[in-house]
Computed example of a mutant assay.
Amino acid sequence: MSTLLPNVFIVEDEQQIREHMLLYFEDFDEFRVDAAESGELALEMLAGEPAEVCIVDIRLPGMDGESFIRAAAAAGNCRRFIVHTGSVDLPVSEHLRSVGISERDVFFKPCGMDLILARVRELLTELAADDQSV
């Protein structure tokens, strides 16, 4: 069993939002946090160090967020996903549902970081319980 803290990874192309999220999450000693500005870069980074939870913007340049989520899930690079999007309405597609995303995992910008943090904590608790039962 690893003694490292769980890894939370942010995929966000807007620099100001990405930096704000990083600074916010770095204040907590419950997990490690890293980020990338594109799905392609995130996949490269996660290949070396997978994440327990990825917070993903849907509208990304190049590979969109849904494509990133499908690729990261298929590669085993992230166990759970949270969507953080500026889209006015985002229906949870069958592809997103197939990797465990529900309406509870979708947050619309602007959104209080405390709400996303609460969901990250819930997901990490669920993952820890799953790991204990194995």
Rank of each mutant, 00 (worst) to 15 (best):
E30K: 10
S102G: 13
A42F: 07
E37S: 15
V99I: 04
R79I: 02
E126C: 00
C111P: 02
R32D: 14
F31R: 00
P6Q: 06
S93D: 09
V8H: 05
L5F: 02
R79Q: 13
I101H: 07
L96S: 04
M113F: 10
L41W: 11
E26R: 11
A35T: 10
P110M: 05
I10S: 03
L90G: 05
E14Q: 12
D13Q: 05
R59E: 15
L43E: 11
I116H: 02
L127H: 00
E19Y: 06
L5P: 00
E52K: 15
E126T: 04
I82G: 10
A35Y: 08
F68L: 15
M63N: 04
D13L: 08
L124P: 00
H84Y: 14
I101K: 08
C111F: 03
M45H: 08
R18I: 01
G76D: 09
V83A: 08
L5W: 00
V120H: 02
E66I: 14
R70I: 15
E37P: 13
E44G: 14
S38C: 07
L5E: 01
P91C: 11
V106D: 09
K109D: 02
L23K: 11
D114Q: 08
H84I: 06
S67I: 09
S87G: 04
V53E: 06
G39I: 04
A75S: 10
V134A: 14
P50G: 15
E12F: 06
D29A: 10
E103K: 06
R80Q: 10
N7Q: 14
S2C: 03
P91V: 11
E19V: 09
E126Y: 00
S38I: 06
D29H: 07
Q15V: 09
I101Q: 05
P91A: 14
L123A: 00
S67L: 12
G48F: 10
L60R: 06
M63E: 10
V92H: 13
L5M: 02
D13H: 07
L4V: 05
D114W: 04
E66T: 12
D130H: 02
A72W: 04
I10W: 01
G48M: 07
F68N: 08
V83T: 09
V8E: 03
Q16P: 03
A118Y: 08
D130I: 02
P6A: 09
L127M: 03
A71S: 15
F68C: 10
G86W: 07
F107P: 00
F68E: 07
E40D: 15
L41Y: 12
L96I: 02
D57P: 08
E103P: 00
I82A: 10
V92M: 12
I82S: 11
D105F: 03
S133L: 08
C78G: 15
Q15P: 03
A128G: 07
T85L: 12
A51I: 06
V56S: 15
E26D: 05
A73I: 03
R119D: 01
A73N: 13
R59T: 14
I101C: 12
